[in-house]
Design a protein around this nucleic acid. Structure first.
Length: 259
DNA sequence: AGTACCACCTGACGGC
DNA sequence: TGCCGTCAGGTGGTAC
């Protein structure tokens, strides 16, 4: 569940549930989700403190513990977090638990174990370290044009490259390209169509956030729910094409999306 | 710079 | 029923 809209939805959720509560304890069930840190270190950094704010950059979340210390979270492919009371039981595949002194806890669930927890003294340093491009929701049109022009890769590969623009994943790349009428394989795209793509990226991401990244609640005119073998275009029923770009499966409508 | 693989993981699904 | 290959909304590494 982890593209920008899911991360933003979770950011808001954590903001509404988990700020200013004193952290009692941390339990790491599987060390593989820790990034360059031991569970002991993480526990020492969390216990007794409280989350002061939650920021997002691309698909990553940053929870501030102190002026110069942030918990960093990447949801990987199947990560999610739930805030619940002790009597509610924990979600399946819980890999990490953060308990608060109020009796509630945050459970990080992640079947595939691709998510990562870490610490940083400065989110901007982590963004530099990972060479992340500008955040897809905080980029202005001019910068978008500059980073997209002058590249020769397939447009979808550019959208998926977090070093070029951060936050867009496989589903929403397909969606934005569908709405903008651009084939994912297109390589040379004029400025006017790039402007259109920019507008659709903004609109698609904001729309997804407005429904809490609940795919079933997206507009009927969206491609996402038709992304399966044999699926058809929501606009006119044309059979969708299925190709691979950068190792990822891409669906597009051969009638509405042009090279 | 761009691309093609592989690896990291587990679960779901379709074919036989 | 059960095994097997393939696929899944991500990222990082390698090699050409």
């Amino acid at each position: 569940m982890p593209e920008l809209p899911e991360a933003e939805t979770l950011r808001i959720y954590l903001e509404n549930t988990s700020l200013y509560k004193i952290i009692l304890d941390l339990e790491v069930r599987d060390q593989r989700i820790l990034e360059k840190i031991s569970s002991k270190e993480l526990k020492q950094s969390l216990a007794g403190y409280q989350f002061q704010s939650v920021n997002r950059y691309g698909k990553r979340l940053f929870l501030r513990l102190r002026i110069d210390l942030w918990l960093t979270i990447h949801l990987g492919m199947s990560g999610w977090i739930r805030y619940s009371g002790i009597d509610e039981g924990e979600p399946p595949y819980t890999r990490l638990l953060i308990s608060f002194t109020n009796g509630h806890y945050l459970a990080y669930s992640d079947p595939r174990l691709f998510g990562r927890f870490g610490l940083t003294d400065d989110p901007r340093a982590l963004v530099r370290e990972k060479s992340l491009g500008p955040d897809a929701l905080n980029i202005d049109q001019q910068v978008f044009l500059e980073i997209m022009l002058g590249r020769k890769s397939a447009i979808k590969a550019r959208l998926l490259d977090q070093c070029i623009i951060a936050g867009i994943g496989n589903l929403y790349a397909d969606e934005a390209l569908f709405q903008a009428g651009i084939c994912p394989n297109a390589k040379s795209i004029d400025e006017e169509r790039l402007r259109l793509l920019f507008e659709w990226i903004q609109r698609v991401l904001k729309t997804a956030i407005s429904v809490n990244a609940n795919l079933a609640d997206l507009p009927e005119s969206y491609l996402i729910s038709h992304r399966y073998p044999g699926g058809s275009c929501p606009l006119d029923g044309t059979a969708l094409m299925r190709i691979r770009i950068g190792g990822r499966t891409s669906y597009y409508c051969p009638y509405h999306q042009k090279r």
